[in-house]
Simulated scan of single mutants.
Amino acid sequence: MKTLTVNGFDMAYLEIGQGKPLLCVHGSLNDFRAWAPVLKPLSTGRRLIAPSLRHYFPDSCAGTEATFTMAQHVDDVIAFIEALDAGPVDLIGHSRGGHLAFRLALQRPELVDRLVLAEPGGALDDTLMPKTEGEGGPAAGTRAHVAQSAEKIAAGDLEGGLRAFIEGINGPGAWDRLPAADRQMREDNATTLLAQVNEGRLPFSRTEAEALTAPTLFVGGADTPGMLPVVLRALAAHVPGAKTVIIPDAGHSMFRQQPRTFGDAVLAFLDG
């Protein structure tokens, strides 16, 4: 593990391999450990860099930090790329990290060569809301599970809060199916959900999707339930030239469930 001071914060990160930089940004309740299953394939011939965002493990989070915002995390990753003198990078973002990567690529397109968005998390505004009955509606991209989970964690029910969050994304029984190491990572980052409730994450818009200039690959899990696939399809339909790959026999954690298939799809896109 290495650290780099950016915006007054010592950002911890993993770095492996040599070659063109590939920056991997984790999602909610995750940290740099999330990428362990794909470190080897994604670092072949590349300089893979996986940071932990501010207030995520090995940092701490009380849940009340004013610096836990999407805008702060975007600014931190921008500063991180600049401090490493690594840009332009190929950028992968998963879930909340996908939202961050989307915002970063809009804000500083010169820092991003190719962009991979693995089921980016967030709500859709009216310009992207699906019109098909049964797909979307007012709840498209709703994140009610975050508030429900935070309420339980604040009341001292750590496992109940984590279960609510994981099953809110992946469906009933998802928490019980998690390997012990994955549960531990979520427990280490549980209090970030308290801060995430008020992180200021804005909904995606059609104008923003159409403004992305980096070649973009969307990656989804074939078994992911709920609104994440709806958000993915809505964005992919409006990002110019976007490609989409769906990983079979996988859900939202597709790169951990099917690391070889995920790695092959991402590397084919990055090398294209």
Results as ranks from 00 to 15, higher is better:
residue 33 R to E: 09
residue 34 A to G: 06
residue 34 A to V: 01
residue 35 W to A: 04
residue 36 A to H: 13
residue 36 A to W: 12
residue 37 P to T: 11
residue 38 V to A: 02
residue 38 V to K: 01
residue 39 L to R: 08
residue 40 K to M: 11
residue 40 K to H: 10
residue 40 K to G: 13
residue 41 P to C: 08
residue 41 P to F: 07
residue 42 L to S: 05
residue 42 L to Q: 04
residue 42 L to N: 04
residue 43 S to F: 08
residue 44 T to I: 02
residue 44 T to M: 05
residue 45 G to H: 11
residue 47 R to E: 02
residue 48 L to Y: 11
residue 50 A to N: 04
residue 50 A to H: 01
residue 50 A to L: 08
residue 51 P to V: 08
residue 52 S to D: 09
residue 52 S to C: 07
residue 52 S to R: 09
residue 53 L to K: 14
residue 54 R to F: 13
residue 57 F to R: 10
residue 57 F to H: 15
residue 60 S to N: 10
residue 61 C to N: 06
residue 62 A to D: 07
residue 63 G to R: 10
residue 65 E to W: 02
residue 65 E to K: 09
residue 66 A to L: 11
residue 66 A to Q: 13
residue 67 T to C: 08
residue 68 F to Y: 12
residue 68 F to N: 06
residue 70 M to I: 15
residue 71 A to P: 01
residue 72 Q to N: 15
residue 72 Q to G: 02
residue 73 H to P: 00
residue 73 H to C: 08
residue 73 H to K: 14
residue 75 D to G: 03
residue 76 D to P: 03
residue 78 I to W: 00
residue 78 I to M: 05
residue 78 I to H: 03
residue 78 I to L: 09
residue 79 A to P: 05
residue 79 A to T: 03
residue 83 A to C: 07
residue 84 L to C: 06
residue 85 D to T: 11
residue 86 A to Q: 11
residue 87 G to W: 11
residue 87 G to D: 10
residue 88 P to C: 08
residue 89 V to F: 02
residue 90 D to W: 12
residue 91 L to C: 03
residue 95 S to N: 07
residue 97 G to E: 05
residue 97 G to M: 05
residue 98 G to S: 08
residue 98 G to A: 08
residue 98 G to E: 04
residue 98 G to L: 03
residue 98 G to V: 00
residue 100 L to S: 09
residue 101 A to D: 01
residue 102 F to E: 08
residue 102 F to P: 07
residue 103 R to K: 13
residue 104 L to M: 15
residue 105 A to Q: 10
residue 106 L to M: 12
residue 106 L to Q: 14
residue 106 L to K: 12
residue 107 Q to A: 15
residue 109 P to Q: 12
residue 110 E to D: 15
residue 110 E to Q: 15
residue 111 L to T: 09
residue 111 L to I: 05
residue 113 D to V: 00
residue 113 D to G: 15
residue 117 L to G: 01
residue 117 L to N: 02
residue 118 A to L: 11
residue 120 P to C: 09
residue 121 G to I: 00
residue 121 G to D: 10
residue 121 G to L: 12
residue 121 G to A: 15
residue 122 G to E: 07
residue 123 A to F: 01
residue 124 L to I: 13
residue 124 L to Y: 10
residue 124 L to P: 09
residue 124 L to N: 10
residue 126 D to L: 14
residue 127 T to L: 13
residue 127 T to I: 03
residue 128 L to P: 09
residue 129 M to D: 11
residue 130 P to R: 15
residue 130 P to S: 13
residue 130 P to F: 11
residue 132 T to P: 00
residue 132 T to C: 01
residue 133 E to W: 07
